[in-house]
Amino acid sequence: MTDSLQFSLDGGVATIRFNRPQVFNSVNKDVALALQHHLRECQQNPAVRAVLLTGTGKAFCAGQDLAEITGPNAPEVADIVEKHYNPIVELIRALDKPVVAAVNGVAAGAGANLALACDVVVAKESASFIQAFSKIGLIPDSAGTYFLPRLIGMQRASALMMTGDKVSAQEAVQMGMIYKTFPDDTFEQEANALARKLAAMPTKGLAYTKQLLNQSFGNDLTRQLRAEGDYQLRAGSTADYKEGVAAFLEKRQPTFTGQ
């Protein structure tokens, strides 16, 4: 693995941290492959019950490291997208645990869209989001054209992608792009507290919710209602459902195990 991407596990929360502050946490091959590895590790490890994706320094992630795709022997941009970014997005969406993007600074290009692929996005009040692709003649990738119009509508998504205008964290909340902001001085503590809250919740129920949300993009109403019935049957057979009901009846706080 690489020091450019840090991984730690504590209290059920796996923290994955971009760690190339000198280049605003831009992604190169080593970072992309390490991120894929850690996301697979989070899926397979039952001790992981939530994932927190964040960055070191002033940036969350500035997207692709352009130094890697310039020069005589540079790989094709399309090859980078297919092998590096697309698998990351698919792993985030398939992960049976909630993934929180804690945007600690600027999130640009693919960095912005990797954040938007996560289940919950929170940001520092001073953070910003930029669909920077048009500024260098590229198109938004990393599922940006999939998630952003679904989050904020076609008109706003089209404008932001074509102009490359910067969106402040507060504006991102107002337009429904992200969940909420936290003050800069308490951001890390509050983002960690959110991830820990999710890690202490019924993990399988959250996974089923995530799978239903994934399906809702392609289902009509009848298929979605049927899917809800199927997943509710699964959720009702979990140990956490039994614990939740028992705790409610006994007027105490539940202790969920993720089973």
Results as ranks from 00 to 15, higher is better:
residue 1 M to S: 08
residue 11 G to F: 01
residue 20 R to D: 00
residue 20 R to S: 10
residue 23 V to P: 02
residue 29 K to T: 13
residue 30 D to L: 13
residue 31 V to Q: 10
residue 31 V to I: 13
residue 39 L to K: 00
residue 40 R to D: 13
residue 53 L to Y: 05
residue 55 G to D: 09
residue 61 C to G: 12
residue 63 G to A: 07
residue 70 T to W: 04
residue 71 G to D: 05
residue 74 A to T: 10
residue 75 P to Y: 08
residue 75 P to V: 13
residue 75 P to G: 10
residue 78 A to P: 01
residue 79 D to W: 12
residue 86 N to F: 13
residue 87 P to W: 09
residue 91 L to A: 13
residue 96 D to S: 14
residue 96 D to H: 12
residue 98 P to V: 07
residue 101 A to H: 11
residue 101 A to R: 09
residue 101 A to L: 10
residue 103 V to L: 10
residue 108 A to D: 07
residue 113 N to R: 10
residue 114 L to F: 08
residue 116 L to S: 06
residue 121 V to H: 08
residue 124 K to R: 15
residue 127 A to E: 02
residue 127 A to D: 01
residue 131 Q to P: 04
residue 132 A to L: 08
residue 142 S to C: 15
residue 143 A to Q: 12
residue 145 T to H: 08
residue 145 T to K: 13
residue 146 Y to E: 13
residue 151 L to V: 08
residue 152 I to S: 07
residue 152 I to T: 05
residue 155 Q to G: 05
residue 159 A to M: 06
residue 164 G to P: 12
residue 166 K to R: 15
residue 182 F to Y: 15
residue 185 D to Y: 02
residue 187 F to L: 06
residue 189 Q to F: 10
residue 190 E to D: 15
residue 191 A to L: 06
residue 193 A to I: 08
residue 197 K to P: 03
residue 200 A to Y: 01
residue 204 K to Y: 12
residue 206 L to S: 09
residue 213 L to H: 04
residue 214 N to C: 04
residue 215 Q to G: 04
residue 221 L to P: 04
residue 232 Q to G: 01
residue 245 V to Y: 07
residue 245 V to P: 01
residue 246 A to Q: 13
residue 247 A to T: 08
residue 256 F to H: 11
